[in-house]
């Protein structure tokens, strides 16, 4: 039986795959010229995409439930109220990293 750490490793992958499948299902070419009505007033193409929005909500609900980045909160709080640590104008762009040459 997989433990919690297994599920937290698997969940993001499953959610990523579901998101890709949803992106593909968004292209509902099968309803492109379909003028059928759902409930007598809602064109089927619009009904499909309204359901797609609800499905997106469900997907993101599963994401926050099963793939939440738990560590990020503690990481963000590590230097609470830290002063800005930006490089000084004089040192930036030229200092220390050897940037610019071909690798």
């Amino acid at each position: 039986m997989p433990d919690v750490s297994d599920s937290t490793r698997v969940a993001p992958k499953v959610i990523f795959i579901v998101a890709i499948v949803m992106a593909l299902l968004h292209q509902d070419s099968w309803f492109w010229d379909n003028r059928a009505l759902v409930l007598g007033f809602l064109p089927i193409g619009l009904f499909y995409h309204a359901c797609f929005s609800v499905a997106a909500g469900v997907l993101w609900a599963c994401t926050v439930k099963f793939a939440w980045p738990d560590k990020i909160e503690a990481w963000a709080d590590e230097f609470d109220d830290a002063p800005q640590s930006t490089p000084t104008p004089a040192s930036a762009d030229s200092a220390g990293d050897g940037e610019g040459g071909a690798a």
């Binding site: 949803m22 619009l46 995409h49 929005s53």
Partner: peptide, 14 residues
Amino acid sequence: GIGVYGLMASWSGL
């Protein structure tokens, strides 16, 4: 027509 929903709204939702 109704395709505007899929074009702008449901893409945005995802």
